[in-house]
Design a binder for these strands. Structure first.
Lengths: 247, 247
DNA sequence: AAGTGGTCTAGACCACGGT
DNA sequence: CCGTGGTCTAGACCACTTA
């Protein structure tokens, strides 16, 4: 059926990006079915009036996303997949909002404290120097879901309690011009203390299983911009993500 | 210091790959320090006798890995980082081996069973059709660390109990010519049943917190090749990984 | 204004997979 | 053998950052 592809050369959007978006959309809503061939690059380039490298760049970006597979001597195929989106550095707030869970946040603490050894090591600052400390309780449908304790280096961002209650920390950082780049995460589990169980509303009380996550986030210059220790109610939350095999 | 870079045109290894490997090695052992500029692409291309697109391809691959950052009008910098390796589809066996933990495996069950509704949905086979079922206990230093229950579609791979005890499932699949492509994971926590606690040697017994993981793995044609339900002793294991922000 | 990366072209030859 | 993707070249112009 030949797929209606076209590029707009007067647009400021790069040509390869226009093409990759259209291909992705075609895959998304089923115009390109799993397993179907994409047709060779030279023909595709000729049809669109583009050079082969430009077409390759578009296709490669979708291969990197895991939507397409290329095989020498065969061609480029749509992956056969239940595959949807790759793992990304996600915000719990955004995750909940996307799931239609109506997230709410209660800021418990928003202050400046001297950095403990652990926090200093994670953020790359002097032990005992001032860092921001924010403790929040995240609720969904009025039920506690997670307890979030975060540390931030000073002077990076203005931590307004009201803003923290209406949006996520990541969104605030991005709005402050910080380009998030990578994060190191550790996910584990342990038994709750009596105080933790109480805080999260776990009826089981002390000893109830908790899902824990520690994360240090870096901006594009490699500086640590946030260190967080989070605990989740496992009955309410789990981490779901998609991995791609690195080639 | 100018960094001793060179390419071997008689090698079958692609030029861009030779270059990216040398740059990565230079970053790894500190010849290129965090924050340092890489010098402009044109000059680098001229110095190596390569074309600019080839040099760009080398640099881009390191940008994708999170080792370099590019800025228009500024240049290409080494990321400032504690950043090491990106998240990959990992094998518990390989992880443990890399950590010097001397993994051992005890195969508890290796049989063929009719697929339950959950397994059938995950593997994309008919409910009640035959699937392989493997239950293993993974030990490190002689201590139980995880209980692994996996299902595989029939006819994919020869599941030899002896091989399963000496290596990981992923390595067996790769050796059988299966190209792993992506996986969908869910990580959570819950309380152990009495039997589970016993199996993992948790003294706390029933109610002890467990770290749980469910994973469906797909090959490069998008077919599900493995579905697993794993439980880990949280005192012995946690998931550690690095995320990159998708651009 | 100068220098950087971002995009794009129009070719070329090679390696691999299937016939 | 032919067709595919994989790699590579030698240019070009543009957009952005910094001084």
């Amino acid at each position: 059926m030949s797929l209606d592809l076209r590029v707009d050369r007067s647009s400021p959007v790069p040509l390869y990006f226009q093409l990759s978006q259209q291909l992705e959309a075609a895959i998304e809503h089923g115009a390109l079915t799993p397993g179907s061939l994409l047709g060779n690059e030279i023909e595709l380039a000729a049809r669109l009036g583009l050079s082969r490298p430009t077409v390759r760049q578009a296709i490669q970006s979708l291969v990197d996303k895991g939507l397409l597979v290329r095989r020498r001597g065969v061609g480029t195929q749509v992956v056969h997949s239940q595959v949807k989106r790759p793992l990304e550095l996600s915000s719990l707030y955004d995750d909940l909002e996307a799931a239609g869970q109506r997230p709410a946040t209660k800021v418990l603490v928003n202050t400046v404290v001297p950095a403990s050894a652990e926090v200093a090591a994670a953020l790359g600052v002097e032990e005992g120097s001032d860092v921001h400390r924010v403790e929040r309780l995240r609720l969904a449908h009025g039920e506690p879901m997670a307890y979030l304790c975060n540390y931030l280096p000073p002077g990076l961002i203005d931590l307004d309690t009201e803003q923290l209650e209406t949006t996520g920390l990541y969104r605030l950082m991005r709005a402050a011009g910080i380009t998030l780049h990578s994060a190191r995460q550790s996910i584990g589990a342990r038994a709750a203390s009596a105080a933790e169980a109480e805080r999260l509303g776990e009826d089981e009380g002390e000893g109830a299983p908790l899902l824990t996550m520690q994360r240090t986030t870096f901006d594009d210059t490699g500086r640590a911009v946030e260190f967080g220790t989070h605990t989740y109610r496992p009955s309410r939350y789990s981490f779901e993500f998609q991995l791609l095999v690195r080639s």
